[in-house]
Design a protein around this nucleic acid. Structure first.
Lengths: 230, 230
DNA sequence: CAGTTTATTATGTGCAGACATAATATTAAT
DNA sequence: ATTAATATTATGTCTGCACATAATAAACTG
């Protein structure tokens, strides 16, 4: 090995794991030994292995050494998409209409989850997203104006709350739940499907520090699929 | 700033982004300038910023510099779980029963997706996973014995195919699709729910290099939710 | 022998310096 | 003015070295 690049080292390490030259659970040579083998600095080996450990392929512990992860599951990523782009990437045209926009005291169960006082006033938005004028997604959102005062001046008729928030609010954390739910009467009327239809639903609660930003329920029209790679 | 650690630098950079001291889309000072400000080596700044860029918070380009990502979508991770552990983590006891286990020519649409010849013989397994003896998950799986000959000797009555594969096959890639589907007659009978019930379904195709390992459809009983953090 | 202290060791982090590379900005040429 | 050659610059990567830290192994002690 004369080519000493952390990328080629990563490729070779992955190959050895896949070929079971280095079986799952087994300890691999130390950084110093690998540096000798690949004829490079230890820092280079360190970077290669550190990144592989970040992806979950390796487990590393001081003194104990580096071993092939027993459960080498690589991790797929889910992001918070801008719905307009999601639609446009399918080659369709996006449009949204605001169904409701009101200031209401937040329901108790949400107040608790959002770490807000009971009966806190929040902005409640119901938005229907359309793809080629067909219902695509029903968005039911509560926004905490205490955390995000700017939202009150946002042009939400032009830019959907989803898009405005993704672009303007640097969130620090979010809890995401994916479920299948039968369409409620409300869902059914809005998305124009029979009541009880299987809907793909994403519920998401996002935070800046310890302050809740927004809680949203996204109910997708039938046929939607969320795809990702691992 | 006298504390020169890549972690404290990351924290400070995150703070500046969240406080909009560095607004989205704006270019931030160069590594050399930051190294001067934080009184550390450029390599330290480089590592701090490089890792933040990996998470999607920053965009970096040679010569152009580093800017705050316009769409700072942090990424949630989804892994391939061991179903037994998923059940046990809920405090329930796991059991599985094999409903069908046969060698069949793979259906055409799967052969194409799995990059296999038409009518290739594969191992077809249908497994019901139970949590506290209640139906939890219906697993319908095709395994390519060309890629994984060992599977034929696996004790699949004791260890579910899911668990055996996760622990024994270091996959290199997987395509995952999440959907909501109405229960088919088959789903309904197996999971003991009315036909048409909204089911959360995961479909997954995994690979070693260019060889398909297995294609699986996981239909969860109602009430299941997949949770993650961003 | 159990429990405690002390070495040892593999990884973690940091530095200064060097050269590579991609992208932009500038200059020269047509 | 448009195009092509050249300089500049910010990030990318690597090296060799140093010291820190956590975890284990070894030695010691009652």
């Amino acid at each position: 090995m004369s080519q000493a690049s952390y990328r080629t080292i990563q490729t070779e390490v992955r190959r050895r794991i896949q070929s079971r030259e280095w079986p799952a659970g087994q300890i691999i040579p130390s950084e110093v030994e690998l540096a000798r083998e690949f004829d490079c600095a230890r820092a280079t080996i360190n970077r290669a292995l550190r990144e592989l450990a970040q992806t979950g392929l390796l487990d590393r512990r001081r003194k104990a050494g580096t071993r092939v992860s027993l459960n080498p599951t690589r991790k797929a990523t889910l992001d918070i998409p801008i719905i307009r782009l999601e639609v446009e990437n399918r080659g369709q045209t996006h449009r949204h209409q605001i169904i409701a926009r009101e200031h209401l005291p937040v329901p108790d169960h949400l107040a608790a989850r959002m770490n807000a006082p009971r009966d806190a006033q929040m902005l409640h938005l119901k938005t229907l997203h359309l793809a080629d004028d067909q219902p695509f997604l029903f968005e039911d959102r509560w926004i905490n104006p205490t955390t995000i005062p700017d939202i009150l001046n946002a042009p939400l008729d032009d830019i959907s709350a989803n898009e405005w928030l993704v672009q303007n609010v640097p969130i620090s954390r979010g809890d995401i739940t994916l479920t299948a739910q039968p369409a409620t009467e409300n869902d059914a009327g809005t998305l124009d499907v029979p009541s009880g239809t299987a809907l793909f639903v994403i519920e998401r609660l996002t935070w800046i520090g310890d302050s809740a930003v927004t809680s949203v329920r996204l109910a997708y029209a039938p046929g939607y699929q969320l795809s990702t790679q691992i």
